[in-house]
Simulated scan of single mutants.
Amino acid sequence: MSSDLPPSRRRPTHRKGRATLTRESVGRAALDFLGDHRPAELTMRSLAAALGVSPRALYNYVEDRRDLITVAAEIFEADWRLPPLDPAPGRWPESLRAMCRDLRAHYRRHPGMTTLALAENVTAARHPVMLRNVDALIGFFAGLGLPLPDAYRACMESIRLVVGFVEFQDSPYDRPPAHLGPADTAPLPPWLTPDGADELPHLSRLAADMPDGTGSPDEFFEFSLDVLVGGIAARLPDAEPDAGPDAEGGQWSP
């Protein structure tokens, strides 16, 4: 059967050799910009320059800088998919660790996104994909036997651990601020020296006992995951009073 309707026209993806803009492409460009620049450097003018267009062109797709950040934050949330989680006894600790490692990698690909969204008062977890991720993570903790309110708290604590670690621990190593030298981001902080043993006995001992530093960010993160898993294990209905890391590798075995 023929139709009298004219064929639909697709918007060209390129014009004069340059990609055409959409609201999503502008948001993704902002995410890419954050991968190479600091959050404060993201402005309508700087992004337009990076895209090779005039700032006025961006206003056809986003209202202002806050709207730009909102779009970027929504794309950022939607791009992460929750890995499979296994609540089975004996398997859930590594499943939780794997999820946290994956989320950490996602945040490290777009450094500063969380801090920028908070500074601009962009509501967190507003995208349907992120809401489904949060709901599934709550369900994972509920499947371990935690009451629903505690399952929600465990979900939020897991996310906060990852986000906080990326913002405060990973960022200085991934992209050292210009005003810091190599010594300032070394594994052992420069202010941690054996001097002043009387005033700072434990820090002084630490400097003497660990001359090569206190560990890489990855080692710190694994320690944090052990603490997270251990705390959750201690709250499970069948938790042993003396549950803790096993003797072989520091891994929790609830």
Rank of each mutant, 00 (worst) to 15 (best):
18 R>I: 12
18 R>H: 09
28 R>Q: 10
28 R>G: 07
28 R>M: 02
34 L>S: 04
36 D>M: 08
39 P>S: 08
47 L>R: 03
48 A>F: 10
50 A>H: 15
51 L>A: 07
53 V>H: 11
53 V>M: 06
62 V>E: 02
62 V>H: 00
63 E>N: 08
73 A>W: 00
74 E>R: 15
74 E>L: 08
79 D>A: 15
80 W>R: 11
82 L>I: 02
85 L>K: 04
88 A>K: 01
88 A>E: 14
89 P>C: 04
89 P>A: 11
90 G>A: 12
90 G>K: 12
91 R>C: 06
94 E>P: 01
95 S>P: 03
95 S>D: 10
99 M>R: 15
104 R>Y: 08
111 P>G: 03
114 T>P: 00
114 T>M: 07
115 T>P: 00
115 T>W: 01
116 L>W: 04
117 A>M: 13
118 L>E: 04
119 A>H: 02
119 A>K: 03
120 E>T: 00
122 V>L: 02
124 A>Q: 00
125 A>V: 01
126 R>F: 00
127 H>A: 15
129 V>W: 01
137 L>H: 10
141 F>P: 07
143 G>V: 07
143 G>R: 06
148 L>R: 15
156 M>C: 02
157 E>R: 14
158 S>L: 07
159 I>W: 10
165 F>T: 01
169 Q>A: 15
171 S>D: 08
172 P>H: 05
172 P>F: 01
173 Y>M: 12
175 R>C: 03
175 R>G: 00
176 P>E: 09
176 P>T: 12
182 P>A: 11
182 P>V: 03
184 D>I: 01
186 A>M: 02
190 P>E: 01
192 L>T: 01
194 P>D: 04
194 P>I: 11
201 P>T: 10
203 L>E: 10
210 M>S: 08
214 T>I: 15
218 D>H: 11
221 F>N: 04
229 V>I: 15
231 G>W: 06
232 I>H: 08
234 A>Y: 06
235 R>W: 09
237 P>M: 06
238 D>Y: 12
238 D>S: 14
238 D>V: 11
239 A>G: 08
239 A>K: 13
239 A>C: 12
245 P>F: 03
251 Q>L: 12
251 Q>N: 11
251 Q>F: 09
252 W>E: 06
252 W>G: 09
252 W>L: 14
